[in-house]
Nucleic acid binder design. Structure first.
Lengths: 343, 343
DNA sequence: CCTGTTAAAGTTAAGGATAAATTCACTAAT
DNA sequence: ATTAGTGAATTTATCCTTAACTTTAACAGG
């Protein structure tokens, strides 16, 4: 038996031969080009279906100089917020006829660089990116910027970037979270922050500071714990905080996972949340509904942000002149009150 | 100012012209083909770097009939197990020089069909798939099977499929989980199952039945609750169970999320876990460590399964004759004992 | 001195689809 | 009857890279 290889796929030439037509007529007919006689078009489409023709997207991309592929760079697909964003992106992308190629930077700059290069070589029509926590220099995105290939950052975005960005209102989120803790009676509020090179955490910290200032609570940088916001890092920091002599009465954590870590460590030490310490997280992860006490957090819809990001990108790709594209779109945030800050 | 379009990218012809060489020499030099003089090769590579040349992957794919892209179909990227698997797949794929295009079926057969078609048109070199819960007929994968394009299923796989599969030992998992409950003293054990059209849930149920049988506990199909295993569906089913007159003393849930839902509903009704009812989940999701009491569960590494799946696929793509490829690889499972089944 | 060999190129032809330019048949208008 | 115009198709060139085939020059051996 002869082994079939991948080469004997049906092409438009096969259809053309079968119908005694030219390849370009077939091509046009399949695209419902009005230059083609209705009868011919139907004949072609019928034959294509019969022969099991599937267009070769690679050949089409090469010729059209358009791949209908969008590159997506995320630090990790397993982060709840990111996986929600990916869902939003996928759904919207499919609606617009684009496929998504995903790359994970694993929070490293080196990998991020490599991915940008790969996507450039792939000739993606546009790039969607969430930068790694450690990216401060964005020069490796230059191939896209210099060649005018649409590029949209969301969630974590470069500072002073002249391009398109989609973010949550992190300052407001930090402010609201901290203000809520104060209103619930907290006087000594600790803060878990991520890398301050990252706009997100900078803004959340700034919001935290601003709320303290409003209520005349002096800022104390001893209360700010900067780490990578994983469960383990949070447990570590929590031990430090809870074994100190001046234990705080509130914590605003820049993500939910490390707030969860804090609550678990507090429970281990029989320190009552919310009675002795009140806690606010960030993102409204699934875990915030699972931990007990349930976690007060700042809602930020990954799904919607992903959707908005790709919508913006697609408008840029299609050079949509009619609709005005917002350059720096900011999503509203909302405080979700749960048990971890009950009075 | 003239607008730059995406077309004026550097090609091998530009390099060839600049050096007064032919395009094929440049092509060869860039691929370190031994037919090219070392001096020439260095000259070409230097010039390529200088001119900012990036190979056009689309043209190369068309010519080589190989895209180095692998398609991935998952029900949802946001499921913890799936996102872990994606991480494993991504890392390994990168190592082997492949890019991953991800599509979500959203647990619908229609979307799954469409994705298969898209990936076929994309001329992916291979396809990795986790079927939707509702897929019973796998004919839509035929384009791949008939054209001998490597196809590997993992986690959820078709029954009686003659191709390559990677699964966890779901029967053993179901058996071990149920046996553990029995050994902890449970006599009346309920089971949350997913769609029984899906091998996973069938096997876990079979394991559950087998354990009951071993300990001479009669199987009672009133105790099996089939739903889609989301938090909401679990809450609904839990209400039913817990408000009935014959409340069980144990629950084996086919995933962690619905076990979490059950524990939450039990807490709401002041039914103590594990004292009154013991609970075992499946997958060792993050949530199993967050819920209190912490959830006993069956470990199944998504990361490793993803890695194994893509390794198998890559071997198939490369027609690796030397290494024997296992057709139906089964991962060991392990019971992780936590507080939800304490005696 | 000529043939044979080899290294190091160059030329040409896919790969499959499509846009642009061209041809052809036929109708309408002068 | 001749020209212009139109609808419907065909031909050709192109996208960029690479594999297959050819050429060229240099040199060794009889």
């Amino acid at each position: 038996m002869k082994e079939r290889n991948n080469t004997n796929k049906i092409t438009i030439y096969d259809i053309a031969n079968a119908l005694n037509l030219s390849a370009s007529t077939v091509s046009r007919a399949l695209q419902n080009n009005p230059l083609i006689n209705e009868e011919t078009r139907e004949k072609v489409q019928l034959m294509a279906a019969e022969m099991g023709y599937v267009p070769n997207w690679i050949a089409s991309s090469l010729r059209k100089k358009r791949s209908n592929i969008i590159g997506l760079i995320v630090p990790r697909t397993s982060m709840y917020f990111q996986s929600q964003a990916i869902s939003g992106i996928q759904h919207a992308a499919h609606k617009y006829g684009f496929s998504i190629v995903i790359g994970q930077s694993d929070e490293t700059v080196a990998m991020e660089k490599e991915l940008v290069h790969t996507f450039y070589s792939l000739r993606v029509d546009g790039l969607l990116a969430v930068s790694s926590m450690f990216t401060t220099n964005f020069d490796h995105f230059n191939p896209f910027i210099k060649n005018n290939i649409p590029l949209v950052f969301y969630d974590r975005v470069p500072e002073d970037f002249s391009g398109y960005t989609i973010t949550g209102d992190d300052f407001k989120g930090g402010f609201t979270a901290t203000e809520h803790l104060i209103q619930q009676g907290c006087k000594r509020i600790a803060h878990f922050s991520g890398q301050l090179t990252c706009n997100l955490y900078q803004q959340r910290l700034a919001g935290y500071k601003s709320a303290l200032e409003k209520y005349n609570i002096p800022f104390n940088d001893q209360l700010v714990y900067t780490h990578n916001l994983t469960l383990d890092a949070a447990l570590q920091a929590s031990k430090e905080i809870l074994s100190g002599d001046q234990v705080p009465d509130g914590l605003f954590s820049a993500n939910d996972m490390s707030a969860v870590g804090f609550i678990q460590e507090a429970r281990r030490r029989n320190i009552a949340v919310p009675e002795q310490i009140k806690v606010v997280g960030y993102s409204n992860d699934l875990s915030s509904r699972i931990i007990s006490p349930s976690l007060t957090t700042v809602e930020q819809s990954g799904y919607k942000m992903g959707e908005k990001a790709i919508e913006t990108l697609v408008q840029l790709i299609n050079k949509d002149e009619k609709t005005r594209i917002t350059k720096n779109y900011v999503f509203e945030v909302e405080l979700i009150q749960r048990d971890s800050t009950r009075k």
